[in-house]
């Protein structure tokens, strides 16, 4: 076996997996615990709120309160986010075929879909705020805003990464040999999407 140094390009690793890719998988493993703790907190406090607004239609002491969630709206924004995973896959596939122009288009599309999702979330947060739901109004407000806000921050970071890659691409630095950069961004992006499926199911859909 040839003696190669770690810094050398194309170094073979003991597992055969690229260092950075392994790092990303480990990071995502620890992300599971971040989101897991927040989702667990949400589920623990589900139905414990004593002050309106409530997430779903609720009747307390004969008084009916209509739920605050707008499921059709959030379904649409969830669909937008899931579609961004598709464009992410197309971006990577294009770059690996060395079709840089198509890759740029798909990267930008992914970022824009992400921004659309964030805009939807901003709209939703504002609506809820006007209906009286804040971080301090009830335990539902605390858990809802912190969990979905934590996820939204992840989407925002993802958008920042995608836009950085887009700028790299404009400068001709995003090539098929360096597609790992995009692949790593993709791993992160898909993870954030999958987490949203969990949040959408547990937080919005299950009553």
């Amino acid at each position: 076996m040839q003696h190669v140094t770690p810094a050398e390009h194309g170094m073979e690793t003991s597992t055969g997996l690229d260092n950075r890719k392994l790092l990303m998988w480990l990071f995502l493993a620890s992300e599971c615990l971040f989101f897991g703790s927040l989702v667990a907190t949400y589920l623990l406090y589900k139905g414990r709120s004593t002050t309106p607004p409530f997430p779903h239609d609720t009747t307390i002491a004969g008084v009916e309160y209509s739920g605050i969630y707008d499921i059709p709206f959030t379904s649409v924004s969830s669909f937008v986010l899931l579609m961004s995973s598709l464009t992410m896959v197309l971006a990577l596939a294009a770059l690996q075929r060395d079709n840089r122009r198509a890759a740029q288009v798909w990267i930008l599309a992914t970022a824009l879909l992400g921004i659309t999702f964030l805009a939807g979330q901003a709209f939703e947060f504002t609506e809820f705020y006007h209906e009286g739901l804040t971080v301090s109004s009830s335990v539902f407000g605390s858990t809802f805003f912190v969990l979905t806000g934590f996820h939204g921050t992840h989407v925002a970071v993802g958008v920042l990464i995608l836009l950085s890659l887009f700028v790299m691409g404009l400068r001709g630095r995003l090539t098929s040999e360096r597609s790992l950069n995009l692949e790593l961004a993709g791993l992160y992006w898909h993870f954030v999407d999958v987490v949203w499926i969990v949040i959408f199911t547990f937080v919005y859909l299950i009553q």
Binding site: S37, T41, S49, T50, V135, S136, V139, S142, V146
Partner: peptide, 23 residues
Amino acid sequence: IALFELGFDRFFAANFFNPENGG
């Protein structure tokens, strides 16, 4: 996450550990 929740309770009067509001 626990410290994050504590931070929201301390800085923004959230209810994670506040029994008066269901915490």
